[in-house]
C-alpha cells in the first residue's frame, strides 16, 4: 500500500496511541522510517514490533510513521496504525478512492 498523504489516527489519551503517517519522497532512505515515543519505556520495543507487524499486514513499505504511545495494548497499536495508513492511502480530493479495496474491514468494502 502506498501512503499518498499525511494522516493521523488515535489520541494521546491513556491506553491509546496517536499514529501519524507521512509519504516518503522518492529516493529518501530508509524507505520505511518508524519513530516510537512511549510513556511506558518498558514496552517501547513491543510497541515498535506491533506497529511494524501492522504495516507489513497492509504492505506499507515506504512511509514515515510516528507512534506516540500512551500505554496502549498491542491490539490498539495495530488498530491505530491500520487506520492511519488507510487514511493516508486515500488519494487527494477528487481522485478515485483506490485504497478501500485494501481495507481489511467488510464495512469499508
Amino acid at each position: 500500500m502506498d501512503i499518498l498523504k499525511p494522516a493521523v489516527a488515535g489520541t494521546l489519551e491513556s491506553c491509546d496511541a496517536a499514529v501519524t503517517v507521512e509519504p516518503r519522497p522518492a529516493g529518501s532512505l530508509p524507505l520505511l522510517e518508524l519513530v516510537v515515543e512511549s510513556s511506558e519505556g518498558r514496552f517501547a520495543a513491543k510497541v515498535g514490533v506491533a506497529a511494524r507487524a501492522a504495516l507489513a499486514e497492509l504492505g506499507v513499505t515506504r512511509a514515515k510513521v510516528t507512534v506516540r504511545d500512551r500505554s496502549a495494548l498491542d491490539c490498539t497499536i495495530r488498530a491505530r496504525v491500520l487506520a492511519a495508513c488507510l487514511r493516508g492511502a486515500e488519494p487527494a480530493c477528487g481522485a478515485e478512492p483506490v485504497a478501500k479495496a485494501a481495507a481489511p474491514w467488510e464495512a469499508l468494502k
Binding site: 519505556g41 518498558r42 514496552f43 517501547a44 520495543a45 495494548l73
Partner: peptide
C-alpha cells in the same frame, strides 16, 4: 496474555 512481558527496569 493481555500486556505481554515488559522489559526489565
Amino acid at each position: 496474555s493481555i500486556t505481554g512481558d515488559a522489559d526489565p527496569v
